[in-house]
Design a protein around this nucleic acid. Structure first.
Lengths: 222, 222
DNA sequence: ACCTGAACACCGTTCAAGT
DNA sequence: ACCTGAACACCGTTCAAGT
């Protein structure tokens, strides 16, 4: 179709509204994410909630990836950083990581974004900084602290993400467990025998995982 | 628009082709995934490669989520399971996990799917089974083995995923590092001081991570 | 500077019709 | 049983036009 010289007339049906802001966009996006998951947080849906069109958002945000990174950070604003006394580094670190997990659990979807987005916002940075300081207080050397902080965050985030992606797809733990239970015991003896253990724990399992990584960090100086 | 009683006439322009198969669909999907990443693997693009329409695929696959789970498993077919001698459980386990990482590195995108898909295909099961058996050979009790296998897989998968999602978004390690380097040293002293360590290693770092988890598992019996 | 509506190039999935 | 094309209900992003 050749419409090089078609005549375009005004398509406006209402006057322009008050200016938006990045803040209000991020807040709206986060609320949609928390309420409806990642698919509820599209540019078009955010815009609709703000009573505007999707194209209006591009003044405040380069693209949806950039918006994601703002939203993750906004989602981490409630993570609690304990006071920071040097002699209780471990309990404080564990308590921070529990708070982080809690925040991700209460707004699943943030976990997914946290996993796919490089954290450069202020809240993410503060959490990272805090972990590094606690590990150093616990005696970890530079490399162990740096690599260990990464491992701890990766662990917590992926635990939260696994859970959220499971419930998002409507898979119950029981249904997955059932499919493992019905496996051929000759081909997969361990999977059948350890079926119960593989799906046990939760709270307890997460604490154990933290312990595993922390012990491992301190026993493997770098 | 009310088109309850519109007349539909034939829309066919060519005769039906030979039957597809789930195998050929999964193979084609995997090739697109390996070559172009997750966004290259849409139902429509797979169909186009098979010279048909997207709707034809739904005879062999319930929805795209189900296809994902087949594709992940297909992508894991080249992971090498070492022989399995009881006295070298650790080196064999490490070697399997390296092979797993390698496979994910050579077809990024599989890592993303592996993280978001419950693994129930034969290759995934065989890998899981193998890890459980090696951990047990190394002296881990039932719960430690079950939870530890999960941790190891989660670790390797998320390491691969982080890398693939980074390069997919065109972020170089250097650019991320630069943004950390320019942080306020008063607010984030550790992040600035440990800048080098946080982005160092790779191969070495991954091996260290495996060691951390393995040590942690054996030191935290459950 | 920023809001607006249309347009472009995509998605996954369903369904009546045809073989 | 399974292929086909159209349709539905979505996407992210760009752009000319308007204020």
């Amino acid at each position: 179709m050749d419409n090089t010289n078609r005549i375009i007339i005004s398509r406006r049906t209402r006057p322009a509204k008050d200016a938006l802001s990045r803040e209000i966009i991020v807040k709206t996006a986060f609320e949609l994410l928390a309420a409806e998951g990642l698919s509820g947080m599209s540019m078009r849906k955010i815009a609709k909630h703000l009573d505007t069109g999707a194209s209006s958002l591009y003044v405040y945000v380069k693209n949806i990836q950039e918006l994601y990174s703002y939203v993750v950070d906004y989602g981490l604003r409630d993570v609690i950083l304990p006071e920071g006394r040097p002699n209780s580094w471990k309990s404080e670190l564990v308590s921070l990581l529990n708070s982080y997990l809690n925040v991700l659990y209460t707004s699943p979807g943030v976990a997914e974004l946290a996993l796919t987005t490089i954290p450069i916002g202020p809240y993410s940075l503060a959490i990272n900084e805090y972990i590094l300081a606690r590990l150093q207080a616990g005696g970890a050397q530079a490399k162990s602290a740096a690599w260990g902080a990464d491992m701890l965050l990766l662990y917590v985030t992926s635990v939260a993400f696994e859970q959220s992606s499971r419930e998002q797809k409507g898979m119950t733990l029981q249904s997955i467990r059932d499919s493992y239970q019905s496996l051929d015991a000759v081909k997969y003896p361990m999977l059948v025998r350890l079926n119960e253990e593989m799906f046990s724990g939760d709270e307890e399992r997460f604490q154990w995982g933290l312990e595993v990584i922390l012990q491992g960090i301190l026993h493997n100086p770098k």
